[in-house]
C-alpha cells in the first residue's frame, strides 16, 4: 500500500463518524522508484489531505520528508523543480507514490479498531457486528 491509497482510505466500523484519517503503523516498508508526473501532482494537490499525508510519511520513517503546511503551487511547480534533487515536488512524489507499506496496521481514529496490513494489503474486512445496517 502506498501513501496515496492511505490518503483516501477510511474505516467504516459501525458508529464511526468519518473513520478518517487512519493512523498508520509501519513494521516494514520498502521504496520503489517511479517516474515523476508533474501534471498528475498538480491535479491531485487540491484533493490531498496534506496533514494525513505528513503523518503517514512520518509513520513510515520519513518525519522530515514533507513540510508541515502544504507548499505553495509556485514553489512546487517552479521551473526545473521536478529535476532538482530534494525539491518539494520530488519529496511529494516520493511520499505519495514511492513509499510502500508492506507490514503494519491502520487504526481507525474514532473506534480504535486496528486493520492489519500484510504483504502490502490492508485487510479492511469487518466482523458481522461491526457492519452498519
Amino acid at each position: 500500500m502506498r501513501l496515496l491509497t492511505h490518503n483516501f482510505l477510511a474505516s467504516n466500523v459501525r458508529g464511526v463518524s468519518t473513520g478518517y484519517p487512519l493512523a498508520l503503523e509501519v513494521a516494514k516498508s520498502s521504496i520503489k522508484e517511479v517516474e515523476l508526473n508533474a501534471d498528475f501532482l498538480r491535479g491531485i494537490l487540491p484533493k490531498l489531505d496534506w496533514r494525513a499525508l505528513v503523518a503517514a510519511a512520518s509513520a513510515a520513517g520519513f518525519p522530515d520528508l514533507l513540510a508541515a503546511e502544504q507548499p505553495q503551487e509556485a514553489e512546487l511547480f517552479a521551473d526545473g523543480a521536478a529535476d532538482a534533487e530534494g525539491s518539494a515536488i520530488r519529496r511529494l512524489h516520493h511520499a505519495l507514490l514511492e513509499i510502500h507499506v508492506d507490514e503494519g496496521a491502520l487504526v481507525c481514529p474514532d473506534s480504535g479498531r486496528s486493520f492489519p496490513i500484510l504483504k502490502g494489503v490492508p485487510n479492511m474486512l469487518l466482523h458481522e457486528d461491526e457492519v452498519r445496517h
Binding site: L4, L9, A10, S11, N12, Y20, V34, G120, L125
Partner: peptide
C-alpha cells in the same frame, strides 16, 4: 505497481475526491 485492499465493496469507505 498496483495497490490492493481487502474489503467487501458494500462496506467500503473512501474519503475525499482522489
Amino acid at each position: 505497481d498496483i495497490d490492493l485492499i481487502q474489503c467487501d465493496i458494500k462496506n467500503l469507505n473512501l474519503a475525499g475526491l482522489l
